[in-house]
Design a protein around this nucleic acid. Structure first.
Lengths: 311, 311
DNA sequence: ACCCTTTATGCTCAACCCTAGTATAAGTGA
DNA sequence: TCACTTATACTAGGGTTGAGCATAAAGGGT
């Protein structure tokens, strides 16, 4: 039996998400390597198998070291096999998703980046992004046309339809990862180091863009049955703030009155009695998250996006 | 910087699930170690970082070696930190969930075990399992009573209520893992090697029972928005077979007529024109899964259990 | 004071879906 | 034939959702 404990490293990688002013942002680290055009990375670091206590704790400490952030809500996302790097080192990376309220980061190189800069086709809040019809679908179609195997081409065409909402297929926000992988297989995702493409989004180092896609997929799914949005909000918030966060994550606009009815009748929030006066119009009640809802309802979440836009 | 590539091993672990005659079963391996009362394990094996190509491929080959099964549908489940074993070896295990149709396994030691033998409190198909009120809640209550810190006791009491459906809180099938962890923390889960407890279920080796709990949680959640059940069925099936599989997984009985309407109107199945005559009554149409539903609906799944029982 | 703009919030109607049944169809075996 | 079993059709009532109209309450300008 070969020696299995050599040439193997486990890395921990964090995607830290916040929503400010209706923009979902992730924390990135710009490597201080001044040589080439280095792409941003997510905060990450290796596990020391002898001294580190748990995976999550190690992750937190790497994040603290690289960004001085202390994380609250954290969940494990996915474990990627990175294959063998140059000198034969096998890398496995375990990724985590953290939700925080955006805060200034003083650490050099660390900063917040708009998620939709990496996935321009995912933001439907202003309607179907033109980039889909102008750039993405044409590129996918030429890729399909070049496929020689007819049967496979048909299958891939179906994937395009399903994931990008063509021919009457509805757009499904959660399919972020499927869309990313489709574009990747079609050779349309610029590699790290390449110039950012206005239609296909900014690059990141390593496979970090895939990690972000995984996170967004998971989050868009989870928001519907778990009250995770509240991790991104201050303790007291207006319903409009809540809605903006939900919209920022799902990339969809929601009907304001119905959203209000949903969260209020759903018992997700309770009024604090206080008001916010800086709304520009009538003052808005300040609400707080009602933890008790967890007892009352099986799957409390904020309304699923039906693609409706506020007038 | 310390040498990080020593004393670390990544294991791959599979939970392989099938449903036969309304019983959900998992594939277990009985170690051939004849010494002590060895508990069953799931199929697993270490990753060889130098020769193995991908995590999933390695997993498949371990399963094939230990049970001669060849897996179809496989998804990654969770990555566990197993801590340091005796001699300082740090173990990480990446677990996968596979869905198959049950088939005979000839390999020595391999066999199928009823999932609910490990989690007797999770099967509500015959109504609320008596074991909850007779054994589990009393044991949890004495545990709560012993907690000294009053505030923590209140929090833990709330967890019990939420997860076990006390005081009008609805029973939520997906919370399998939460319930397992609660019982574990309360010291009520027998360790591997202990005699199986009729109320708290059979033991498994290592943390494998936690892995199974994780899998069941995931599956019960996923069944509602993804057509995963069909992986467990033959290509042609009756609606009653389909319902039995759904019930076996969720642990809930469903209203037959409504279930039929749901899957039929939902476009999940299509009639094949053939009939099954061995039903004991009127012959039943044979259906097949309608793959095209993936195009039409955002989240096609089989109806959520509302705890209704067929008369 | 009055009007206009802005945002928050209340309310309604119709379409749709789900729940819990009742009723009927089509086999089997006595 | 009847009794029994399972499959399948249909329906009445309640709840939820989608979409829009209407009103409330602030600020600013005149």
């Amino acid at each position: 039996m070969p020696n299995l404990v050599d040439a193997l490293r486990v890395d921990l990688c964090a995607i830290i998400l916040a929503v400010t002013d209706g923009t979902p942002r992730i924390l990135t680290i710009r490597p201080t390597d001044a040589r080439a055009t280095v792409a941003d990375t997510l905060p990450w670091g290796p596990l020391d198998p002898r001294t580190d206590r748990t995976l999550e704790r190690t992750l937190r400490s790497w994040v603290a070291r690289q960004s001085r952030l202390s994380l609250g809500y954290v969940e494990q996302l996915y474990t990627f096999d990175e294959g063998r790097a140059g000198e034969g080192l096998r890398r496995i990376s375990v990724t985590y998703l953290a939700l925080v309220q955006e805060q200034a980061v003083s650490q050099a190189g660390a900063g917040w980046r708009n998620v939709y800069a990496f996935f321009p086709w995912e933001d439907w809040r202003e309607g179907r992004p033109p980039v889909i019809d102008h750039a993405i679908l044409p590129a996918l179609n030429t890729w399909l046309a070049r496929l020689s195997d007819c049967q496979q081409a048909e299958q891939e065409r179906e994937r395009v339809e399903i994931h990008f909402g063509v021919n009457g297929v509805p757009w499904v926000p959660e399919r972020v990862l499927d869309r990313y992988e489709l574009l990747y297989q079609a050779g349309l995702i610029p590699e790290a180091g390449a110039a950012p493409h206005p239609a296909f989004g900014q690059a990141m180092a390593l496979n970090h863009r895939r990690v972000v896609a995984t996170a967004l997929s998971r989050l868009r799914g989870k928001i519907k049955y778990r009250p995770v949005v509240f991790e991104l909000l201050p303790p007291r918030f207006t319903l409009w703030q809540l809605q903006q966060v939900a919209e920022a994550l799902t990339g969809m606009s929601l009907h304001k009155q119905n959203f209000r009815r949903l969260v209020e009748q759903g018992g997700l929030v309770a009024s604090t009695g206080a008001f916010a006066y800086d709304t520009g119009g009538r003052p808005a009640q300040l609400f707080r998250f009602r933890r008790r809802v967890l007892r009352e309802r099986p799957a409390p979440g904020v309304g699923l996006p039906s693609g409706v836009r506020d007038s």
